[in-house]
Design a protein around this nucleic acid. Sequence first.
DNA 1: TATATATTTAGACAAATGTCTAAATATTTT
DNA 2: AAAATATTTAGACATTTGTCTAAATATATA
Lengths: 84, 84
Amino acid sequence: MNAIFKALNDATRREILELLKTKERSAGEIADHFNISKPSISHHLDILKQADLITSEKKGQFVIYSINTTIMEDVLQWILTFKK
Amino acid sequence: MNAIFKALNDATRREILELLKTKERSAGEIADHFNISKPSISHHLDILKQADLITSEKKGQFVIYSINTTIMEDVLQWILTFKK
DNA sequence: TATATATTTAGACAAATGTCTAAATATTTT
DNA sequence: AAAATATTTAGACATTTGTCTAAATATATA
């Protein structure tokens, strides 16, 4: 739970998740959406991956990232314990 | 959304929310549940309050904190946009 | 094989964060 | 009014975080 909330606690990372919501994308495509250096985006992707919120797959010289919505379910369940 | 995720990105603060889930409590009662100084807990309470996740009310010399579950609804809605 | 393209790793640095102790403020009790 | 109790504010400090540039690694293409 710690890794998930840590990953979600950054606007750029949440925006990356939004991007991946529609379709999978390469690291470069993701980086192109931000005014942030590629190494920084790579680092954000790593944090999202540590939280299992995204997965990656190497395709030739590209690395394709996809969202892993099953982890969102964990957050959902946690939130639901607070609904009276 | 930023303030909410920031507030949730700490195990102590999440545990405070768990405590308040059952009933409202004074700052001192909350602090007694942790091996952390009262000023630190006060600071955590402030961050939770900034996110509107809790409310406070002064009762005599005590300050009583309560959870505000309506804000959890916002997180819930955000999460749900990822469920396919 | 040399060069270009895609991505990550390494290391540095400023800003933000969580913690503490000491002091200040507010309220109640003696 | 003085002392006790409850909480917050202020300031310090070590750790974590997000960012950058430069360099390393991996793959594809000329």
